[in-house]
Computed example of a mutant assay.
Amino acid sequence: MTSKQPPLPMRPVRAAQPRFTWHHFAMRFSSTPRGARLARHLAGERLDAWGIPYGSEAHDTLTLAVAELSSNAVRHGHVSGRDFRLRLTAEGTVIRIEVTDTRGERLPTPAETASSDEDGGRGLLLVAALTDRWGWYPCADGPGKTVWAVLEVPPRPEQQGSSQ
């Protein structure tokens, strides 16, 4: 006896749900340019899965902030043989990005100005301009520091509950 089963969908279908209530993602990456690119790529995928779609202003802002902080961890916080860690946290409509490296003596300071012919020096200026707030703190469990940034993501129009 054979029973006919409906075909499986090609892609999982997301159920309609709030953008996010609470989500967490953390991963270690090699302190290399490739590690920084992978951190940006995986952060973008995670944000999309949490309801912040590719191409949206919030998605672009957050992935740029991840890219800049990860690049800084590689460029200024690199210690041979040590990885950097990316942590994303979504609670309510607030997204927090944390990038931890193992170089505690090189503290993050945004450049006052960067000349147009310099390559670099604008990362923290971008993060400060694009996010609601940013900062850093020393690691409590070892050498290094964590640089963080926070962005309030407004609810999508269909989530605001407007009735017309």
Rank of each mutant, 00 (worst) to 15 (best):
A128D: 14
M1G: 15
W22G: 10
W136D: 10
P18T: 09
V99S: 13
M27E: 14
G135M: 08
L107Q: 14
I52F: 00
H41N: 15
I52S: 00
P157H: 09
V74H: 11
G121S: 11
L62H: 02
P18F: 08
R85C: 02
W148D: 03
T89P: 01
L38N: 14
R14Y: 09
R40H: 14
D132W: 05
G35C: 09
S163W: 13
S80M: 04
V150F: 04
Y137G: 06
C139Q: 10
F84T: 06
T89I: 08
A65F: 01
T93S: 12
L62M: 01
A73M: 06
M27G: 09
D141R: 13
V153N: 03
L130Q: 01
T93L: 08
L151F: 14
A129F: 05
A129H: 09
F20C: 05
L125A: 14
V127C: 03
S115Q: 15
G120S: 13
W148A: 02
Q159L: 12
E98G: 12
T61F: 02
S116C: 10
T146P: 01
F29K: 11
V13K: 08
Q159H: 14
L151P: 13
S3K: 08
V127L: 01
R19M: 06
A26H: 04
E57W: 00
R34V: 02
R156Y: 03
A43C: 12
H41T: 15
P9T: 00
G142M: 09
L88V: 00
Q160S: 10
A16Y: 01
